[in-house]
Amino acid sequence: MSRVSVPCHVKGTVALQVGDVRTSQGRPGVLVIDVTFPSVAPFELQEIMFKNYYTAFLSIRVRQHTSTHTPAKWVTCLRDYCLMPDPHSEEGAQEYVSLFKHQMLCDMARVLELRLILRQPSPLWLSFTVEELQIYQQGPKSPSMTFPKWLSHPVPCEQPAPLIEGLPDPNRVSSEVQQMWALTEMIRASHTSTRIGRFDVDGCYDLNLLSYT
């Protein structure tokens, strides 16, 4: 299925302070990023892709167009998606992430605006965000291809031509020829090559021996 990039405008991050802002212990642990689509009509979101930068958990809310007389409402479509298995370690801190519509908690049709809520509970990282944000919608369907009739309706396998009446079966003839060849080899192997010697004794023929032959 093809996809098409949707032009979007990413607003500046808004930090939500965690802890006492009057002390050094206070630091932003949650960031909010709004994404708008001023140049496109409400669309069906297919995929969200970005590069993580030390964000541990991600939640996404979507504002969808409902009807002319009903104001659009914000709906949570992703809640606390884990980007770093351990917020205190480097694993997953700078990975590329793709989120698809089947992973969302609600239908992603008629999207007007997105709100990304980033959370990092670990005090080890000075900053966190998401980078290279890309939004995709489903592209146009490919036109159906037409095939020639001979491809759409293949000819069934041809059957072998029937034997002409009166001719022997070639398989039977082949079998009999092989049997004859085997018998010939057996006879040739059993035939002795020793020639019978002359019936002579000291250069003279013995009449008794000759009479037996």
Score class of each variant (00 low, 15 high):
Trp125Lys: 11
Ser127Tyr: 07
Val130His: 02
Val111Phe: 01
Gln137Leu: 02
Glu113Thr: 04
Gln137Asn: 08
Trp125Phe: 15
Lys141Ala: 15
Ile135Glu: 07
Gln134Trp: 00
Ser144Gly: 12
Leu112Asp: 11
Leu124Val: 12
Trp125Cys: 08
Val130Asn: 05
Phe128Met: 01
Leu118Ile: 07
Met108Asp: 06
Pro123His: 06
Leu116Thr: 07
Arg119Met: 12
Glu132Met: 12
Lys141Asn: 14
Ser122Asn: 13
Pro121Tyr: 01
Val130Lys: 01
Leu124Thr: 11
Arg110Trp: 04
Ile117Met: 09
Arg110Val: 05
Leu116Ile: 08
Gln138Gly: 11
Ile117Leu: 13
Leu116Ser: 04
Gly139Lys: 00
Ala109Val: 04
Ile117Lys: 06
Gly139Phe: 00
Arg119Gln: 14
Ser127Ile: 02
Glu131Val: 07
Leu118Thr: 05
Ser144Phe: 01
Glu132Pro: 03
Ser144Ile: 12
Arg119Cys: 12
Glu113His: 12
Arg110Glu: 14
Pro121Trp: 00
Ile117Pro: 05
Leu126Val: 09
Pro140Ile: 00
Tyr136Asn: 12
Ala109Ile: 01
Leu133Lys: 04
Gln134Asn: 13
Leu116Gln: 02
Leu112Thr: 03
Ser127Ala: 15
Val111Thr: 15
Ala109Pro: 02
Gln134Gly: 09
Leu116Val: 06
Gln134His: 13
Lys141Val: 14
Ala109Leu: 05
Arg110Tyr: 10
Val130Asp: 07
Ser122Ala: 15
Tyr136Ala: 11
Pro121Ile: 05
Pro140Val: 01
Tyr136Leu: 12
Leu124Trp: 08
Thr129Met: 04
Pro143Asp: 06
Trp125Arg: 11
Tyr136Gln: 07
Lys141Ser: 14
Tyr136Trp: 15
Glu131Pro: 01
Ser142Tyr: 00
Pro121Gly: 08
Pro123Leu: 06
Leu126Ala: 15
Arg110Lys: 14
Gln138Phe: 00
Leu114Val: 10
Thr129Ala: 09
Thr129His: 07
Gly139Ala: 05
Leu124Ile: 07
Pro143Gln: 02
Trp125Gln: 11
Lys141Phe: 03
Gln134Arg: 15
Pro143His: 04
Leu114Trp: 05
Thr129Gly: 05
